[in-house]
Every structure is written in C-alpha cells, then in structure tokens.
C-alpha cells in the first residue's frame, strides 16, 4: 500500500472535474457552499476582493478556522499557502487538508523558489498564466493547475486570456516537429520531458481548472467551453447578494456548460453579482497574476 503517490494526488483532481470549488472563510459559508453543490471548498482568511481592498500581508488561515470548516462539511477542504512558504504547507498537511493551493492571492514568501511539492503527501494546485509556468509548477510536483485570472475583480477577462494562452501554446507544441521541441522547451523554460508529453498528448498532464474573476453562471460556462475542466469561484459567490442561489446556479452552469437553454434558466432572477473591477484601473503593478515565476 502506497500513500501520497502522484496517481492519487492527480486522481483527486480528476474526481473534482466538472465541479465548482468555492472560497469560504468559515464553517457557515462552507455549509452554504456544500448545499449549493460545490465539489470542494477553499478555506481562506479573507476572500480575494477583501485582500485586495485591505492590503497588508495575506497569509495562511488560522488552523482553528480550517478545522471548523473540516468538521462542518463532508466534501474536500482545500487551503492556501503562500508561494514558497513550505512551512505553511507542512502545517496544512498536518491538518490533513485535502489539497494545498500554493497561491498568488496570498503574499509570496519567496521571490525565487516555489515549494518543492514532491516532498509532501498532500497534493498541490498551483496557478499559471501560460504553459511554461504550468509546466514549471508540474515539474515541482503540482498535481493540478488552475489558470490564474485576476482574483478578486469579478472580471473574467484575465481568466479568458490565460486559458486561451495555454490552449494556444499546447496547440503550437502539438504541431511541432519533434526536433523543434528542444528549442520550445528552452523558450517555455520548462523541462523537455513535460514539453514532449504535452506535444504528444495535446493537453496538460494534470487537470486544469479556471480561476480568478468568475462571477456569473455564464462566466463559468464560458471557461468550461474554453477548455477548463472545472472552476474556482472566490469572491464571486460570497460577495454577491445571494450566495446560496448564485452558488447553485454556477454549479449547474458548470455541469450544463454546453446547454444554452439551461444556462438561460439558471442565469435568471439571480440577485446582484459582486461589483467588478476594470483591470486597467487596478494598475499593472497591483496585478496579483504576476506573482509567481
């Protein structure tokens, strides 16, 4: 019997596919998320839009909050660690969270190194804005990828950009001669073995979800049609006027992403979405997506 193998780490991500992972800050929200049909919850101290508004250093949640959430629901509980903060990750593993998100939404702890995720039994999901970044994270042991988007904005434009970028880069690799892959690997700054695998299989070697700025059922279905295998919704649910109904609608839209009749139905009569932010008003230096390397 072997625990913590890549097969079981990546396998849990396979089981989350077609589902919605919702950000929650306490047990009460976690229960609302589970009731809405979330396939997992992400425990964090503040949702991204609050982190963005409050400023300061954003860190791993208080373990007490995480325990409370674990006790409150039966679905998988994920939690965020700072980029490079392997001790936060050790703590989260000791708490037996089901997945760790090494997340750019928190303030990075190391400006050069990500966590060596091979050292852990618990699986990791990491953000990426392009194929090279995704493959670097996978080479460090990530068992799941999510495109970053721009967290806490309620604006899906960056999520779309990142998903389209990764898909286009995969298509380019798939069309290359095998002799050209070495140069491609150099340009992508990614290991040649992973580049060859992607070129042969035409997809990432692990599950890829979409995150960062999704706020409506239509946003979720858009990302699914663009090739996401599931979605993370952060501020979009609990910063909206009616989280329970919006959460349920986003879950249904993610399942029926190719069924406009159902999408029309679940998009109807939802109370207000979270207020969104225009990306250019945030300022390039304040974009979260550029954290991580």
């Amino acid at each position: 019997m072997k625990i913590g193998t890549m097969k079981v780490k990546a396998g849990l991500a396979e089981m989350l596919k077609g589902g919605v992972i919702m950000d929650v800050t306490n047990a009460e929200q976690a229960k609302v998320a589970e009731e809405a049909g979330a396939c997992a919850v992400m425990a964090l101290e503040r949702v991204p839009s609050d982190i963005r508004a409050d400023g300061g250093v954003a860190r791993m949640s208080d373990p007490e909050k995480i325990r409370e959430i674990q006790e409150g629901v039966s679905i998988p509980v994920m939690a965020k660690a700072r980029i490079g903060h392997f001790v936060e990750a050790q703590i989260l593993e000791a708490l037996e969270v089901d997945y760790i998100d090494e997340s750019e939404v928190l303030t990075p702890a190391d400006e050069a190194n990500h966590i060596n995720k091979w050292k852990f039994k618990v699986p990791f999901v990491c953000g990426a804005i392009n194929l090279g970044e995704a493959l670097r994270r996978i080479s460090e042991g990530a068992a799941m990828i999510r495109t970053k988007g721009e967290a806490g904005t309620g604006n899906v434009v960056e999520a779309v950009r990142h998903m389209r970028t990764i898909s286009a880069e995969i298509r380019q690799l798939a069309g290359m001669d095998e002799d050209e892959l070495f140069k491609a690997a150099k340009e992508l700054r990614a290991p040649i073995e992973l580049v060859q695998w992607v070129a042969q299989n035409g997809k990432l070697p692990v599950v890829n979800f979409s995150a960062g700025g999704l706020a409506t059922p239509a946003d979720a279905a858009l990302m699914m049609q663009l090739g996401a295998e599931g979605v993370f919704v952060g501020s979009g649910i609990f910063k909206s006027a009616d989280p329970a109904s919006r959460g349920k609608a986003i879950v249904e839209a993610t399942t029926h992403y190719n069924d406009p009749e159902i999408l029309a139905k679940v998009s109807t009569g939802l109370k207000e979405a979270m207020a969104g932010l225009e990306i250019k008003d945030i300022g390039e230096e304040n974009l979260i997506q550029h954290r991580g390397w």
Binding site: I3, G4, T5, V8, G11, L12, M15, Q70, P76, D98
Partner: peptide, 26 residues
C-alpha cells in the same frame, strides 16, 4: 482524508490473476 488516499494491488477472485491495481481516493 486525501493524505490517506492510496494505491494497493487487490485480489479480485472474479477477475482471476493478476491482482487488480486498486486506486483509492478518499
């Protein structure tokens, strides 16, 4: 929880030999 998820070869008499690769996730 997930940290206890595992792989183990399983005896499934109805399938005969060899053992079946069991992947157990939560």
């Amino acid at each position: 929880r997930q940290v206890k998820s595992f792989e183990a070869p399983l005896s499934v008499p109805a399938l005969g030999e060899p053992l079946f690769p069991g992947i157990f996730i939560r």
